[in-house]
Design a protein around this nucleic acid. Structure first.
Lengths: 152, 152
DNA sequence: TCAATAAACCAAATTATATTCAGATGGAAG
DNA sequence: CTTCCATCTGAATATAATTTGGTTTATTGA
């Protein structure tokens, strides 16, 4: 789908606050409510906008102890990779998991309550996964930037 | 704020799809529309729900070449840290930046179009930041998991 | 040049949803 | 037992989403 400057501005606005009404958006974009509505629908139908979600304050729910964990597998067999990825999908503490090039195979972002919970997660969940050769945990001192807004 | 099981289920639902109507939610939670509405408002006012956003499909907008870049600073002086973090905030390609413990000081997630754009980003933006001692890029082979849903 | 066409626009009407209101219910504390 | 408070309910109202009908604008090909 071809995006013009109005679409791009609309996407920026919706990525920051999806609860704005079409009327508010229409003012910011200098368009009518209907025009905004049709642009949004088009962006949704074409798949550019994939979905709308609520974001939680991790501190308020005590899940703000975060760790980036580097994982190396024993072998790069397709079977091992698939099994590891399937198992990681089911770990609710793992909010992100990236298969990467370089010294390690995977980088995981883990959100738990505190160090004690992380220890428990490591011992009883992560290291019980199959085919892991080694792990290396980097504790998060600060979440300097975490924007979901991608500037088109 | 104290969360009961209904609140937790509600948060799960809204983290997956924030466009559900109160009526739909009321069915899933076996409550009245008003009861759902008041719970949501409470979660918003207390700050548990921080905001609502639209998510984009990175492939559709050609920003699906992702890199995790490890950065080490020359010194851990407060001034250097602050300057680095301020500068990173302004780089639109950097969607996440974590200050971490360990061998490196920062881990950045970068979203661009392709390798050429990444090269340009590295040469003309990242490495021109002050006080960087070294960087190490891990290219993303696959985004195995990237959920925004935190299970409360 | 100038109709034909399609895309994008607008205002108004309609439909659906969000929000408020006025009680009802059900513990918990005195 | 009764008061209080939190939570709930259905109905009423306010607001927003969505549809409708028609206009403008840009493009294109005869």
């Amino acid at each position: 789908m071809q995006l013009d400057e109005i679409d791009k501005k609309l996407l920026r606005l919706l990525q920051e606050d999806a609860k704005q009404t079409s009327k508010e958006l229409s003012h910011k974009l200098a368009l009518s409510v209907t025009a905004v509505y049709e642009r949004v629908r088009k962006l949704e139908n074409s798949g550019v906008i994939s979905r709308y979600v609520a974001l939680l304050n991790k501190q308020k729910i005590a899940k703000d102890f975060m760790v980036l964990c580097h994982v190396k597998l024993t072998q790069h067999k397709k079977e091992y990779i698939q099994q590891f990825e399937r198992e990681v999908m089911d770990l609710q503490e793992v909010t992100e998991c990236f298969h990467v090039s370089g010294d390690y195979d995977y980088i995981l972002k883990i959100c738990v309550r505190d160090m004690e919970d992380y220890r428990h997660f490591m011992l009883s969940k992560l290291t019980s996964l199959q085919h892991i050769a080694s792990t290396h945990s980097s504790f998060m001192i600060a979440e300097v930037k975490n924007t979901l807004t991608i500037l088109v």
